[in-house]
Nucleic acid binder design. Structure first.
Length: 551
RNA sequence: GGGCCCAUAGCUCAGCUGGAUAGAGCAACGGAUUUCUAAUCCGUCGGUCGCAGGUUCAAAUCCUGCUGGGCUCGCCA
């Protein structure tokens, strides 16, 4: 599908080539005019009025004739206080509708492959327990962002970083061991900061059932590594499963342990040494990260010889780079907000490209039930596991509700509303709208009407009501909006676009009859409905939600 | 105290490269149903865009300061 702004800008620049000074050219960009209709507007006259010592309106009038000749233009008007409004030519609009009809929901909003590889890393919760409801927001944002970037032609890798090395993992293992050893009639002390969730005894029982005999026959040290391996696998299986239930899948599950055991830390440390950005102090190895914008230097290797997460993070991102990614977009929760500066300093100190790492932080989610804030704790009996949430409200409802606000804003997730079939539930609204359109198509086919596959001959001039024009506007601006959403990394905007489209469809539906005498108007309306449905499906594809044929 | 995020209608939130009268849903009130799905639609009510400066022909949008809320500041990850 065409990016209209780009297309129009190009034609504007050609039309005005001889009328603009070089420094004025960048100002010749159009945007969608505000109130209704399909006009694209150029505010250039007001921007150049001062340097030209002319009234904006006079400049607009002066440029108008040249623009009137553009292929995209139907009507070009100079209006006060100095805008030039460009109404699209009907033939051009019909061509756009044709492009939509010729596309599948998966390809409709897609641009050509650009050969660049981008990784989106998201969720990446420690494999020391099941996913928490809060992880759902990262799952939704990351998965939709990944698909959104694919529409822009990127080769996207979805990755989950498994933090299966280090002190957290040891605590996890020892917490299970404490339970498990009891079952075996042995003793193992519960670590001070051990994990105390009810899933720990469950894991212990599970491992005991599967590996009990083996555990009896091996020495203590080996027992712990068996427990660690088994515990990790069980937890990861659960995590993978609850993400799948939310419609989220990954291309790679990347192990931290793998990094460490395959010498990536050492490699990166050597690199740091070669670049002269490390020093030894108090028995530890430090990175001079303050040279790269950090507010303090960071320890890379602890006094006890163990690598810090800082070193492993450096190794991990260096590894991503070595795997051929031009960029890594990491999606983190608000508790990682303080990591941005140190992480970027790390990238700089490694000599990675300036724009290699992008970090998206999403703010916290508040859950509500019946208008009351839900306190997430086992004591209150409220659900805290993502899997339970998805089971309660449904996959699509969960995805949609996690996208209800921009990642930068905190989010209120109302569990009751998510289950309701009402207007304040966008998931149902989208589904209902699609089913309604599908029903119209069925009726049209039933009475021998044809569903158009081609719109080039569609007489767009028939579409004159505000409802017609509003729907056309939704269709034509779609690619521009999606490109913007991808560029600014704002997946939630796709949900808003879909809801806006659905609203326009329903308003149109209520006001205008589609199935009627076979006239030019009826044909044009049918094209409008079919393209609207296709676009709705394209948005749903990016959002990862399913739209039913009937409800 | 430092860093980052947020502050827009009674509530929850959108608001794209600054542009023409600041939008949506909910809530409140009033309408539409012999009809292609009323699980819908229309209308009314509702705003000093946190405050104060600045830049600009033009600021919710950009800059500075302030106020309030959130997250975060480990040789944990």
């Amino acid at each position: 599908m065409l990016n209209l702004r780009e297309t129009i800008d190009r034609q504007v620049n050609i039309a005005l080539r001889d009328l603009l000074a070089p420094e004025e050219v960048p100002l010749a960009v159009c945007s969608l005019a505000r109130p209704g209709f399909l006009d694209y507007t150029l505010s250039l006259p007001m921007k150049v009025a001062r340097t030209r010592h002319q009234a904006p309106l006079a400049i607009a009038q002066q440029l108008q004739p040249a623009l009137a000749g553009m292929p995209v233009a139907g009507l070009v008007e100079a209006v006060a206080p100095g805008y030039i409004n460009i109404r699209l030519a009907d033939g051009f609009v019909a061509e756009q509708l044709s492009l939509i009809l010729a596309s599948s929901p998966q390809t409709l909003l897609c641009r050509e492959a650009n050969g660049q590889r981008i990784q989106v890393e998201f969720v990446s919760a420690n494999p020391t327990g099941p996913l928490h409801v809060g992880n759902g927001r990262g799952a939704a944002l990351g998965s939709v962002l990944a698909t959104l970037l694919e529409t822009q032609g990127y080769d996207v890798g979805r990755e989950y970083y498994v933090n299966d090395y280090g002190s957290k993992m040891r605590l996890f293992t020892e917490s299970i061991a404490h339970e498990l050893f009891q079952m075996m009639g042995l003793e193992f002390p519960m670590p001070d900061d051990g994990y105390r969730g009810s899933y720990i005894p469950e894991l212990a029982r599970e491992i005991f059932a599967r590996k009990g005999a083996e555990l009896r026959s091996v020495p203590d040290a080996e027992r712990l590594s068996i427990i660690e391996r088994e515990g990790r696998e069980l937890v990861l299986t659960g995590i993978r499963q609850s993400l799948e239930e939310m419609g989220v899948s990954f291309d790679t599950w990347f192990s931290e342990r793998y990094l460490v055991e395959n010498g990536w830390n050492d490699r990166v440390l050597e690199q740091f040494r070669a670049r002269g950005v490390v020093y030894d102090r108090d028995g530890a190895v430090w990175l001079r990260s303050t040279d790269f914008g950090d507010d303090k230097d960071r320890v890379l290797v602890r006094r006890d010889g163990e690598p810090t997460y800082t070193l492993t993070d450096a190794a991990y991102h260096f590894n991503k780079f070595e795997r051929g990614y031009a960029k890594s977009i990491d999606v983190f929760g608000a508790d990682h907000i303080g990591h941005i500066v140190p992480m970027q300093a790390l990238m700089k100190s490694l000599g990675l490209p300036e724009d290699f790492l992008e970090i998206i932080i999403y703010q916290i989610v508040h859950f509500l039930r019946g208008g009351q804030h839900v306190v997430l704790s086992k004591q209150t009996g409220e659900i805290i596991e993502l899997a339970d949430l998805v089971r309660e409200v449904g996959k699509d409802q969960a995805r949609v509700f996690f996208l209800l606000s921009s990642a930068d804003s905190e989010l209120e997730f109302d569990l009751e509303t998510a289950k309701e079939n009402s207007l304040d539930n966008p998931a149902y609204y989208l589904k209902y709208t699609h089913a309604r359109l599908a029903s119209v198509m069925r009726q049209a086919r039933g009475i021998g009407g044809s569903i158009p596959a081609e719109a080039r001959d569609c007489d767009v001039s028939q579409l004159t009501t505000p409802e017609d024009r509003e729907l056309l506007k939704c269709l034509l601006k779609a690619q521009d909006e999606v490109d913007d959403a991808a560029r600014t990394r704002q997946p939630h905007r796709i949900l808003y676009l879909a809801s806006e489209l659905a609203k326009s469809v329903n308003t149109f539906y209520q006001k205008e009859k589609v199935i009627q005498e076979d006239t030019a108007l009826a044909q044009a309306r049918m094209v409008l409905i079919v393209t609207a449905q296709r676009l709705l499906q394209a948005y749903a594809y990016i959002l990862g939600i399913d739209l039913p044929e009937a409800m």
